[in-house]
Amino acid sequence: MRKPSHSSNNSPESSGAINTHRIPQPSTDVAPEAAWFKSSYSDGTGNNCVEAADLKSTQVGVRDSKNKQGPALVFRRSAWTSFITGVSHGDLPTDAYV
């Protein structure tokens, strides 16, 4: 497996490497504020809240509702659906590990 080049002369496109070191984007750059909605899985106390946004037909954005200008994670819709299904069926732990 090749290591991604950090040289400005070798872009991922020209070197064939996959770009796994992306610069985080503020959630409002990923989707407009009106697109974000609080997840039904949030605990309602304001301490463990996430918001999601439907992006393209194949993507979902996720952000921390306490940091609306903070970074957003973007997942393929199929991966997000599998994650939610696993949590709701008890296949994944729901306890927070700190």
Rank of each mutant, 00 (worst) to 15 (best):
L55H: 00
T94L: 00
V30F: 00
G90S: 01
G46V: 04
G61M: 01
V60F: 02
S88L: 04
S65Y: 08
P12A: 07
V50Y: 13
L92H: 06
I84F: 00
V50P: 10
E51K: 10
S39H: 08
M1T: 10
T94E: 03
S14M: 13
A52L: 15
L92D: 03
S65K: 13
Y97A: 10
G90W: 00
R22Q: 13
R77N: 04
C49P: 10
R76H: 14
P4F: 02
S88W: 06
S27W: 00
P26N: 11
G86S: 09
M1Y: 13
D95F: 08
T58R: 10
P24G: 05
P93V: 02
N19I: 01
S14Y: 04
V62A: 09
W36T: 02
S57M: 08
K66N: 15
S78L: 05
T20E: 10
A53N: 04
A79W: 01
V98K: 14
N19V: 00
W36L: 03
K66L: 11
V87H: 00
G61T: 03
T58W: 06
G61S: 09
D64M: 06
S42E: 07
T81E: 15
N9Q: 14
W80I: 03
R2N: 12
A96E: 09
A53G: 06
A96C: 07
S15M: 12
A34R: 12
Q25S: 11
L73H: 08
S39N: 10
V60I: 15
S27A: 15
G46R: 10
P12T: 03
S8V: 15
Y97G: 05
P24D: 05
G16H: 10
D91M: 08
V87I: 09
G61F: 02
R76A: 15
Y41P: 00
V30C: 02
S11H: 07
Q69K: 13
D95P: 04
A96T: 10
P26K: 06
R77D: 07
H6I: 02
N9I: 11
Q69F: 13
G70R: 07
S27D: 01
G70C: 05
H89E: 12
V62H: 05
D64N: 11
I18K: 15
I23N: 04
S82L: 04
P71K: 01
Y41C: 09
L73N: 06
G61A: 08
E13W: 12
S8K: 11
S11K: 14
L55D: 04
T85V: 12
D91I: 03
W80C: 07
S27Y: 00
S5L: 13
T85N: 09
C49N: 09
D29H: 07
T58S: 13
A96I: 14
N48L: 11
H89R: 12
I23K: 05
V87T: 03
F75W: 12
S42F: 02
S40N: 14
R63G: 06
S39K: 08
N10H: 15
S42N: 08
I18W: 11
A35S: 12
G61P: 08
F37T: 14
